[in-house]
Simulated assay, not measured.
Amino acid sequence: MTRQIVLDTETTGLSAQTGDRIIELGCVELVNRKLTGNNLHLYLNPERDSHEDALKVHGISNEFLRDKPKFADCVQDILQYLQGAELIIHNAGFDVGFLDKELELVGLPPLATHVDSITDTLAMAKELFPGKRNSLDALCDRLEVDNSGRTLHGALLDAELLADVYINMTRGQDALLIMDEAPAGDDGIRVAAMDLSRIALPVLPANEQELAEHEDLLTQIDKSSGGKTIWRTFAGGEKAMP
Rank of each mutant, 00 (worst) to 15 (best):
D137L: 09
D100G: 07
A138Q: 03
P130A: 08
A85H: 05
T121F: 01
P205H: 12
K132L: 13
G185W: 08
P109Y: 01
T12D: 11
Q17D: 14
G131W: 12
L105Y: 10
Q83I: 01
S197L: 03
Q209L: 10
L139F: 02
T2R: 14
T9W: 02
D195A: 04
G172F: 01
D49T: 03
L157V: 00
A206P: 07
Q209W: 12
D187C: 06
H114W: 15
L177W: 09
D141S: 06
F98Y: 01
V145N: 00
T233V: 09
T36A: 00
L14F: 15
E52N: 12
I221K: 02
A123H: 06
R232W: 01
I118Q: 05
D164L: 11
L14V: 06
D146K: 03
I118V: 06
E181V: 02
V75M: 07
L30N: 10
I60A: 07
G37K: 08
V75F: 13
A72E: 15
D174N: 13
A192F: 02
A159V: 09
V106G: 03
L44D: 01
I5A: 00
K70V: 04
D73C: 06
G149E: 15
D195K: 00
S225H: 05
F129N: 03
D100Q: 02
D186A: 13
V31E: 15
L35G: 03
Y43Q: 10
K223D: 15
L55A: 03
M241G: 07
R33G: 01
T219S: 13
E210T: 13
D100R: 05
D180C: 12
A85E: 04
T229A: 09
N91C: 03
L177K: 04
V191A: 04
F129K: 00
V191W: 07
E238T: 11
S197Q: 00
C140H: 07
H51V: 05
D186N: 13
R150T: 10
I189K: 00
F94S: 08
D186Q: 10
E47L: 07
A163L: 07
H114R: 00
G185Y: 08
A112L: 14
I23G: 01
G59N: 06
G227W: 05
G237K: 13
G227Y: 09
A112D: 13
I178W: 11
E63Q: 15
L201P: 04
D195W: 04
H114C: 05
V203A: 09
E104N: 05
E52R: 12
E52I: 08
A182H: 05
P69C: 11
Q17N: 15
K34V: 14
L211H: 02
D195F: 02
